[in-house]
């Protein structure tokens, strides 16, 4: 085999690897519900269900800054003709500010049910306060689960979230609930 044919073979080989990798399928998202249905059938704790949790009385801890932000969003929502200047990003969507104190972190991102748990989609940025990372994110009305990802590796719950929900695997996700009026519970 001469040099030229080796080069060609190498090219075709790399082409084959790329074609193979590009065609590999991702398992369907229906798998998630199937797994959780089986997990719930195994776990008495899991049978409680998220809906029951939502309907039951819960202790809610709210940070003053978040409360102030939510209150201002609510006020602006009720102010006639000012909707465009409020925390509403668009109809049915509310701007929510997320914060995490992580002085040792090099990067902090936000992953949740609203972005398919992508680690890279939403980056928090360092604020003027030392160690405080923030991001303001448009979220749809409803309930969302989320976690912070520190340095691309450590998944941590929001220590100030009003509620944490078991993910069924011994860890917890933080919960944020946004009402149709734009009021945020966090």
């Amino acid at each position: 085999m001469n040099d030229k044919s080796s080069e060609l073979s190498e090219d075709r080989f790399e082409l084959a690897l790329a074609a193979y990798a590009a065609g590999i399928r991702q398992p369907a998202s229906g798998l998630d519900n199937a797994v959780m249905a089986r997990v719930r059938s195994l776990s008495p704790r899991g049978r409680r269900g998220f809906l029951q949790w939502l309907l039951a009385p819960q202790r809610v801890n709210v940070r003053p800054i978040v409360l102030a932000f939510a209150a201002s969003v609510a006020l602006l929502l009720m102010w006639p003709g000012r909707a465009a200047d409020t925390g509403l990003a668009s109809a049915g969507t509310v701007l929510v500010r997320f914060e995490l104190v992580a002085p040792e972190a090099s990067t902090v991102s936000l992953a949740g049910s609203f972005n398919s748990w992508s680690q890279d989609a939403i980056r928090l940025v360092p604020s003027a306060a030392p160690g405080l990372w923030t991001a303001t994110v448009p979220l749809k009305v409803g309930s969302h689960e989320y976690l912070f990802v520190v340095d691309g590796q450590r998944w941590i719950a929001d220590p100030t979230a009003h509620a944490q929900v078991a993910d069924g695997f011994g860890q917890t996700n933080s919960i944020i609930v946004i009402s149709p009026r734009g009021v945020v519970k966090s």
């Binding site: 590999i24 399928r25 991702q26 398992p27 369907a28 998202s29 798998l31 998630d32 797994v35 959780m36 992953a111 049910s113 398919s116 748990w117 689960e145 993910d167 069924g168 695997f169 860890q171 996700n173």
Partner: peptide
């Protein structure tokens, strides 16, 4: 949710490891 997160992260790995999508889901 954790299942979704790891399905997305390891789903294609599983498919390539077993050779077909149905078996990977199982």
């Amino acid at each position: 949710m954790l299942v979704e997160r790891y399905r997305i992260e390891f789903g294609r790995y599983a498919t390539a490891m077993v050779g077909d999508q149905d078996t990977a889901e199982d």
